[in-house]
Simulated assay, not measured.
Amino acid sequence: MKAIFKREVKSYFTGMIGYVVIAAIFAFISLYYTANNLVYASPDFATALYSTSLVMLFVLPALSMRSFADERRNKTDQLLLTSPVGIPSIVLGKYFAQLAVFAVPVAAACVMPLILSLFGSVSFLSCYAALFGYFLVGAACIAIGTCISALTENQIISYLATFGALLVCYMINSIQTLFTSGNTMAFIVFCVILAVAAVLVGLLCKNVTAGSAVFCVGAVVLVLLFKLRPAWLLTAFNQGLDALALFDPFIEFVSGMFTLSGVIYYLSVIALFLFLTGQALERRRWN
């Protein structure tokens, strides 16, 4: 794992991706920090961090898109999978390398609350709790992107799929409002989610028929449930959407409510998607 970690970190800084990701994240944090905290003399550093959470949707997919997709495109994944290194070590080595790059601007941002303290009273507990939450949500986004990267050999597809997944997680509250309204748009959103699921099944199975079968069967079940048990369907799906609200626990960190449940949620998301990444690699090893 150590060798893979070193190789991946070096590759990020051999090219431009590592520098661009670090510069983009730190630039936006600095921009909102200057506007919210320095110009208006506000001690609330957490607000500046929350304002930059949208940037993750655009920047972090660029960090994770090449992790496994680039290996498959260059046909070096076979060498990696046949090496004496285990699948967990491969996944963790690549994942920790991405975390190391993301940790650079987060570590640099740790200086900002100290600068604020020179001008007045600052709650360091609130500031650094928000920074910790910011790092956790970024780590979860990277884990999702790593999993998607393991499913394709095209970096552009990996980027767009990761961006789409994170965008859905970011807008989950708006989607929930759409579902609870009970209008016809709710059914359209169900169909879109079903179509995405069918595409993922098709990619995993490398079979268009399998993806089409999932969509057709799912569409029939969806129509029946929507007509016969609409209340049950909407309630059950809203509970599922709560689990997909990736950025909601971060709001608690920003609000000064450091909760253990939020930490456990992000660690669970990271563990789940790294496990799925390992399963995708294990399947490719034997096929």
Score class of each variant (00 low, 15 high):
residue 220 V to C: 14
residue 218 G to C: 07
residue 193 I to N: 03
residue 211 G to M: 03
residue 5 F to M: 08
residue 186 A to E: 00
residue 46 A to M: 06
residue 247 F to K: 00
residue 135 F to S: 00
residue 47 T to P: 11
residue 68 F to V: 15
residue 147 C to D: 01
residue 63 L to R: 06
residue 222 L to I: 13
residue 152 T to D: 07
residue 202 G to T: 01
residue 152 T to Q: 02
residue 8 E to R: 01
residue 58 F to I: 03
residue 102 F to L: 09
residue 236 A to K: 02
residue 277 T to P: 11
residue 207 N to L: 12
residue 176 Q to E: 07
residue 209 T to W: 09
residue 45 F to R: 01
residue 125 L to Y: 14
residue 254 V to G: 03
residue 120 G to T: 08
residue 102 F to I: 08
residue 96 F to I: 14
residue 117 S to Q: 05
residue 242 D to I: 08
residue 98 Q to C: 14
residue 222 L to R: 06
residue 207 N to S: 10
residue 189 V to D: 00
residue 80 L to P: 12
residue 101 V to R: 02
residue 53 S to F: 09
residue 179 F to N: 04
residue 94 K to L: 13
residue 3 A to Y: 05
residue 216 C to L: 15
residue 88 P to S: 00
residue 41 A to V: 13
residue 242 D to E: 06
residue 286 W to K: 12
residue 152 T to V: 14
residue 275 F to R: 05
residue 92 L to N: 10
residue 211 G to N: 04
residue 203 L to I: 15
residue 107 A to D: 08
residue 5 F to S: 09
residue 177 T to F: 13
residue 114 L to S: 12
residue 193 I to A: 11
residue 77 D to P: 14
residue 218 G to R: 00
residue 181 S to P: 11
residue 87 I to Q: 07
residue 184 T to G: 08
residue 220 V to P: 14
residue 225 L to E: 05
residue 125 L to H: 09
residue 25 I to M: 10
residue 32 Y to V: 03
residue 29 I to V: 11
residue 209 T to F: 14
residue 270 I to P: 08
residue 6 K to V: 15
residue 16 M to D: 01
residue 57 L to N: 01
residue 135 F to P: 06
residue 122 V to I: 12
residue 282 E to T: 15
residue 135 F to Q: 03
residue 93 G to P: 11
residue 72 R to V: 12
residue 107 A to Y: 15
residue 94 K to R: 09
residue 128 Y to A: 00
residue 237 F to R: 01
residue 223 V to Q: 13
residue 229 R to L: 14
residue 206 K to I: 05
residue 90 I to T: 04
residue 26 F to A: 10
residue 95 Y to K: 09
residue 271 A to R: 09
residue 272 L to D: 02
residue 251 I to E: 03
residue 154 N to R: 10
residue 173 N to V: 14
residue 261 S to N: 07
residue 14 T to D: 03
residue 223 V to I: 15
residue 143 A to R: 03
residue 3 A to C: 14
residue 284 R to D: 07
residue 222 L to N: 08
residue 213 A to I: 15
residue 32 Y to D: 00
residue 266 Y to W: 09
residue 201 V to N: 05
residue 38 L to K: 04
residue 147 C to A: 09
residue 210 A to Q: 07
residue 177 T to R: 06
residue 163 F to N: 03
residue 51 S to T: 05
residue 92 L to K: 09
residue 108 A to C: 15
residue 172 I to Y: 09
residue 30 S to Y: 11
residue 78 Q to I: 14
residue 206 K to Y: 01
residue 116 L to E: 03
residue 63 L to F: 13
residue 183 N to E: 02
residue 70 D to N: 06
residue 189 V to T: 04
residue 214 V to E: 01
residue 174 S to F: 15
residue 63 L to C: 12
residue 104 V to N: 07
residue 15 G to D: 00
residue 134 Y to I: 08
residue 258 F to W: 02
residue 142 I to R: 01
residue 129 A to R: 04
residue 47 T to Q: 03
residue 285 R to W: 12
residue 56 M to T: 07
residue 118 L to G: 09
residue 156 I to E: 08
residue 108 A to K: 04
residue 285 R to S: 13
